[in-house]
Design a protein around this nucleic acid. Structure first.
Lengths: 188, 188
DNA sequence: GCAAAACTTGAATGAGCATACAAGTTTTCT
DNA sequence: AGAAAACTTGTATGCTCATTCAAGTTTTGC
């Protein structure tokens, strides 16, 4: 079967992440990505069909990593409170909360409203994160507060990503610790 | 004096805001903006010299509005606690927290790392907001917490903007109320 | 070992875009 | 009024870029 195809997908989406981080989503070219992958622009088109489809695959890859980190942490937790902490910490997992990933994430987000495929991915991801938070919060705060605390948490976490992308500094451990403090105070 | 020049600056930056909101920063063209302003692309170049300079002027305009809203609210407040609330509320002032402005703001932010002029504006603005927050927080929380609470607040507010840009829904009043609740809990 | 399939790429194609320009129109000043 | 200054715009220019293609190279299956 297409072993090479899998390897290439992996290499090319990784190159896309680095290239977008380096040049910006708005200005990155197929050649920039090809160069980063030590391949040719034509080759990328052979695998993905178009720049847009490559970007979609790259975003899917990031979303998959978030999903994976989330599931992993949920699995290790016992109580609702632990699961909630796990959800928050998953957002700042070492594998996700790194400079190139942060850049990409924020840039994809801000472009999502202008691309049908990105908008769809964004909506699905947001829905999943939200329903996870919702499920645990329902057991921890009064019913009237569930919705607002979910929104507060989500806004805070998005903001941390945004700031990380700006500064280029991503200390995942510090981010997790600080996020857990925020979580504590929002639950109080 | 150049009265027309001022009017045109106003009209053209307003058109740029609407056009970026409609098409996205990455894809908006001079023609889109010209159309929105009922002018020609050449005319925009006559006034601003280049697309980049127009974008810079547009960003300056937004930053000016934030500065204005901030000063206005600080002026009305007496205690450190009131001033802090004012700072937070200024970020969600009716004149700023509207769909087109939110879109633009987030897109400029996410592109700032790739443009020297935008990066500079971003840094200046961030510094100003941060020092205002810092000044009031120093009188309200233990010295060891000032820095982290500042960061938490800033992340939360950025995140709200990001979310607003995504959803296109900007209820400024609700945003202010919710932000003040977050502020309360972070200070606790 | 060899044909077919899968893969790779340099160069060609063509679309879209910012900007420059020349030729007009309107406004200002006296 | 009339000249000069300020403004406006359609069109031309030249560039960048995604995508295509034909011609090669490598891998696979037998």
């Amino acid at each position: 079967m297409s072993r090479i195809r899998d390897i290439r997908n992996e290499e090319l989406t990784a190159a896309a992440i680095r290239a977008v981080h380096r040049h910006g989503y708005a200005q990155v070219t197929m050649n920039d990505i090809a160069l980063e992958a030590k391949a040719s622009a034509a080759s990328i088109n052979y695998y993905f069909g178009s720049k847009e489809k490559l970007m979609e695959a790259t975003m899917r890859r990031l979303l998959g990593e978030l999903r994976h980190a989330t599931i992993e942490r949920l699995h290790r937790a016992e109580t609702p409170r632990d699961r909630l902490s796990g959800l928050v910490a998953a957002n700042f997992d070492d594998r996700l909360f790194a400079p190139a990933q942060c850049s990409l994430w924020v840039q994809f987000w801000s472009n999502a409203p202008y691309s049908a495929t990105l908008a769809r991915l964004h909506r699905i991801n947001r829905g999943r994160v939200q329903s996870h938070l919702h499920a645990e919060l329902r057991q921890l705060v009064p019913a009237t507060e569930v919705r607002s605390v979910t929104a507060m948490l989500q806004a805070y976490m998005d903001g941390v990503w945004l700031e990380a992308a700006q500064s280029g500094l991503c200390d995942a451990g510090a981010a997790r610790r600080e996020a857990l403090v925020v979580l504590d105070r929002l639950l109080a």
